[in-house]
Write a protein that binds this DNA or RNA. Structure first.
Lengths: 188, 188
DNA sequence: TTGATAGGGCAGCCTTGTTGACTTTCCAAG
DNA sequence: CTTGGAAAGTCAACAAGGCTGCCCTATCAA
């Protein structure tokens, strides 16, 4: 961390990627790449009158079936009212199921239905396809760097959330909720 | 590029970062990092009743003073009406100046005023600060990988736009528009 | 002269974010 | 067993920033 400051001999290398212009390039890369990143799922979502917010909910419910509304709220970083609107339509349309919490009956645990799983799969496969291509093109070492920079860019609290996925939070540990995370295997 | 495919001995390494789960981690990293990426400027913008759209316009006008509305439209990838609403408030508030094109009088060339330059600087400095820290933390090699993956993720047309910034598009080559790109120099 | 292009304006719509206030259900501590 | 507070949900109202469709003016170029 900040190796360049401690190593006067490397100031040249520092300048190589910390000029305002290099930083601006990075900023623009984020902007353009993020747009592409959301483009494929957005097209599918538009077909069926859903938006990006629906995708995000589906994604995180799929990642951790049985998670509570509060957890989802924390991950998404939006207000209860915002999330609720989205969640309501997903439940009405039969993509998401909301069960009364078994640990605490005030809580609602969220699950994807068959139909929900299907849409989530379509969406994430579209997104993964682009990611896969980019990863292949750039190579393993670039991917490692990519992940390192993104992680360093996050707010500490968010970074905690991101990293904690390796070992899931308490809500999702209920053995009753144990479900295969990704049942399909196109992981060629 | 695609070294892993050409080197059968490295298939293990390939699988190491192309499983659905690894791809999902990348997807979530993008989501979380992008949120952090926009957070700092968003806070400044909220103070003064502007939004992210205003920031984007300021950024690209600052990058290429004298660019036309059509060029800006192409870069931002929004409709004329969307951009116009934002541009109008920026012009009314005296942050952006719109001059009749000298090459083609139908065109409008966009410039930042003193006031616009000042706000743009505040916004981009906040964003650069985070970027700089992330870059320092991750190191030069990671940064290179970061940029490679983002670039590979873009749509080809956008990638062209992104890369062409090295040598500016025609509109911005008019010698009359020649202005220093970043006059301040905090490039420690 | 005439068609095409650049820009702008208006109307109206949607999604997704926000605040604020209020209710119901239920857990847990006193 | 009561009670405070947490979890969830709801209603209302608002704003930003996307979108479409339509129309207008100025200007260029054939």
């Amino acid at each position: 961390m900040q190796q360049n400051i401690r190593m006067p001999g490397m100031i040249g290398e520092d300048l190589l990627f910390l000029t305002d212009d290099q930083l601006r390039r990075g900023i623009e890369a984020m902007f353009f790449a993020y747009r592409a990143f959301t483009a494929d799922p957005d097209m599918i979502l538009a077909e069926m009158d859903y938006g990006r917010a629906h995708h995000r909910a589906l994604h995180f419910i799929s990642r951790g079936p049985g998670l509570t509304v509060t957890s989802l709220l924390a991950v998404l970083g939006v207000t209860k009212q915002s999330l609720n609107r989205v969640l309501r339509t997903l439940i009405e349309d039969g993509l998401v199921e909301s069960k009364i919490g078994r640990r605490d009956r005030r809580e609602r645990q969220l699950f994807l239905t068959e139909k929900g799983t299907e849409l989530e799969r379509r969406l994430s496969e579209a997104q993964r396809a682009r990611m896969r291509t980019a990863y292949r093109t750039a190579g393993p070492q670039a991917v490692a760097g990519f992940r390192q920079v993104l992680e360093a860019m996050m707010d500490p609290a968010t970074r905690g959330l991101y990293q904690s996925v390796k070992d899931l939070p308490e809500d999702q540990k209920d053995p009753a909720n144990e479900q295969p995370r990704y049942t399909y295997s196109d992981r060629r």
